[in-house]
Design a protein around this nucleic acid. Structure first.
Length: 573
DNA sequence: CGTTGCAGCGCG
DNA sequence: AAAGCGCGCTGCAACG
């Protein structure tokens, strides 16, 4: 075997992987750094998984591939777990849009995320369409890797490197969570549905409980054929009955006094459960008592994850009780209380706000600071500050925060001003906000045209303020997403170090059937599925991971990020 | 007929 | 009480 020896201790090894030119088989180069001369090993498709398994066991290199989204699942299915990786597509997006580099990576259609490809296919953006079939080509992968390491080496500090490492580890975790799945009891889910809706309808009709409500709504509005699923018809029927709402949305109906309101709101609630998470959803998404959504790392411009299929990030709390651990196993579930304002306090180094954030309830701390009178006021003021509320109760309270927490408010206010002027803002680790698009720029320049009329100007101002609210929120939401990414990575690291337990094997697939694993992630909460005997060790890992994430993101600045953590066989609250 | 935009509601 | 940020999914209604 002519594999290069492992580099000197402490020197990370990289495994750069791509397809061979003729499209048959793979090329793998083990390198100790970007300057090393690539001498790739040729591996046939049939030998590939075994070869990766062997290299991982021997070298634990940082696997550098075009995209883990396609690279990793077949390995996991074959029982191969990777410790470290570098996802070139995800890191390309970061290094292309960052303002932490004097010379960011040039945008290239070959390295777009799959969700960006669809936009790029629209004419105008690029002459080239979707990435061609040889986008995985080894030489292209190697060249892009060198470009990315070069860009990271030119960065003024290590923050972008930390972000790229965390983003790539996040992609590993996303695929691992899909492979392991979230334990989900079909039986418990069916019980919830039958309690709320009645028996499963046999041939596509409405469930009994919804049908009764629809009939009652029709009677009350004097229209037997009225379909409550049609907002347009409902609105007309309501107007005929003297209920002058502007929409049929829940919050507007709730403030109207009319006998139809109660059954209609109840109908909407049941209809949502039936259509979004009813028996059809169960049949499609839950197999062998596992829910396996696809997580899209970096799917949101702020760095938050998105998901595809099954609405993984919108599972209603009503259904959380269907999340049931396997026999002999339990869940460790943890979420952060008020992550975003805590992150704002730390990233702006606002000592007064960090002081208010001490302890489990930041809102009570803000009341203690004297900025506002009640916990509810604190909540609205903080949300208004981060989202850019200007009117109503929330908008009225924000100026009080400005007096007490000038540094924190200065940070979000500056981000809003930058956005309004068409500028780019950045998270703490250097993820940049998108530049304004053509439509936005045109609206602004038209408004300053000599021939501009009032309508142009007010529309441009309105679009500018819209963008200001976006960039105001971007810096906070994006930095909170970075904290969560570091937390996830630290949890995974600690779970991997736990001893293999003596526990009954589960349905979680070849890698995770017999060891503690992350099972779910939602912005600021995680669910770990683990053998009962390891629950306390896992809980300690999750807590220690939060402390480590805080220390890495905010070194030297004291900020509390308390967890609400439970050990239970149900993930429900 | 299939595609697209919108309203509404779930999550943080 | 407020209606300010970011998402995905569904069904309806309008469109070509």
């Amino acid at each position: 075997m002519t594999t290069p020896v492992r580099p000197a201790a402490g020197q990370p090894a990289h495994a750069v992987v791509g397809r061979s030119r003729n499209g048959k088989g793979w090329l793998i180069a083990l390198l100790d750094g970007p300057e090393a001369e690539a001498d790739p090993e040729v591996v046939s498709d049939g030998d590939f998984v075994a070869r990766v398994r062997a290299l991982e066991a021997r070298h634990a290199p940082r696997w550098t591939v075009r995209s883990l989204r396609s690279f990793y699942p077949p390995l996991l299915a074959a029982g191969v777990r990777l410790r470290r990786a570098h996802d070139l597509v995800l890191c390309h997006a970061i290094l292309r849009d960052t303002d932490a580099l004097a010379r960011p990576l040039p945008a290239s259609p070959l390295w777009l995320r799959s969700d960006e490809v669809e936009e790029a296919i629209q004419p105008g953006l690029f002459d080239v369409g979707a990435p061609s079939a040889d986008a995985d080509d080894f030489d292209a992968v190697l060249a892009q890797w060198r470009d990315q390491l070069g860009a990271l080496a030119r960065a003024p500090d290590s923050r972008l490197s930390l972000l790229c490492a965390a983003e790539s580890t996040g992609a590993l975790i996303a695929e691992e969570m899909t492979a392991a799945g979230l334990p989900w009891s079909r039986h418990a889910h069916e019980s919830i549905l039958e309690d709320a809706l009645g028996p499963r309808p046999l041939h596509g009709g409405r469930p009994a409980r919804m049908a009764e409500l629809a009939t009652r709504i029709g009677e009350l509005l004097d229209d037997a054929a009225l379909n409550p699923d049609s907002p347009a018809r409902m609105l007309r029927a309501l107007h005929r009955a003297g209920v002058f709402v502007e929409s049929t949305s829940r919050w507007e109906l709730a403030r109207v006094e009319h006998p139809v309101v109660a059954p209609l709101l109840e109908y909407k609630k049941l209809a949502r459960l039936f259509t979004a998470n009813g028996w059809t959803w169960l049949d499609e998404w839950v197999k062998d008592d596992r829910f396996r959504p696809i997580y899209l790392t970096g799917g949101v411009v702020t760095g938050r994850w998105a998901s595809s299929g099954g609405g993984a990030l919108q599972i209603p709390r009503q259904l959380r009780d269907a999340v049931r651990a396997d026999t002999g196993w339990v869940f460790v579930t943890a979420d952060v209380a008020q992550l975003e304002p805590r992150v704002l306090a730390a990233m702006s180094k606002d000592a007064a706000m960090a002081d208010a954030a001490r302890g489990a309830d930041l809102y009570e701390g803000i009341v203690r600071s004297g900025a506002v009178g009640t916990r509810e006021e604190a909540k609205y003021a903080v949300l208004g500050a981060m989202y850019g509320a200007t009117t109503g109760e929330s908008g009225r309270l924000v100026p009080r925060l400005r007096k007490v927490f000038p540094r924190a408010m200065g940070l979000v206010d500056a981000a809003a001003r930058t956005g309004e002027q068409g500028g780019v803002v950045s998270t703490l680790l250097g993820r940049g906000s998108p530049r304004p698009d053509e439509v936005w720029l045109r609206a602004q320049s038209q408004a300053s045209d000599p021939g501009a009329v009032g309508v142009d100007e007010s529309r441009a101002r309105s679009r500018a303020r819209d963008r200001g609210r976006f960039t105001r929120n971007f810096v906070v939401q994006g930095t909170a997403a970075e904290w969560a990414l570091l937390w996830l990575a630290e949890i995974r690291h600690r779970l991997m170090a736990l001893p293999e337990p003596d526990a009954p094997a589960t349905a979680s697939g070849p890698v995770f059937a017999s060891r503690a694993h992350l099972a779910f992630f939602l912005h600021d909460e995680v669910i770990v599925h683990c053998p009962r005997e390891q629950a306390e060790a896992v809980a300690d890992s999750v807590r220690a991971a939060a402390v480590a994430a805080t220390a890495r993101l905010f070194p030297g600045f004291p900020i509390d990020v308390p967890l609400d953590l439970r050990i239970s066989e149900h993930a429900g609250k």
